[in-house]
Amino acid sequence: MTSPEQARAALAEARRVQERARRSARWFTWFLVATGAVSIAWITAMEAVWPQGRLALAPVWAALFLMAGFWMNRREALPLGAGRSLMAATLTWFALYLVVVGPVTRWQWGTSVPAWTAASAIAALPFFVAAWMRRRA
């Protein structure tokens, strides 16, 4: 038997647990922001500060990704669509860096630190946009 009162109570309980779950998944927004910030530092370091050390920095980036994966696996909850969101942001960032921002900056400004900081900030926009969209949702 389910009365209107029981149905309302069940729906209220559903809202309570869902709010708790969403709170536990909020870390992902900040994770996207941190990934964007780290990518700016990494690209600037690799292209402007220490361009001859590109090969040495690549394993550092791989290690960071691995650590981020471990860290994500230690969170209590993964928000809806997180994998898709991260994948889309990463692919767009990589395409921007590899095809558009990277070649243009290298060609026009060489190893200028301010130019690479600005360029890597543009390339990191997908991470910040993804974080902003999550914050709004």
Binding site: A10, E13, V17, R20, A21, S24, A25, A77, G83
Partner: peptide
């Protein structure tokens, strides 16, 4: 319809995946 199972599903509907302890405690 069981209250506990309804709450479990409600929690899981809000996320991609949840850790056992989060579900248990919530």
């Amino acid at each position: 319809h069981t209250p506990a199972r309804f709450s479990i599903l409600a929690l899981l509907a809000a996320v991609d995946r949840a850790e056992f302890r989060l579900v248990r405690d919530t």
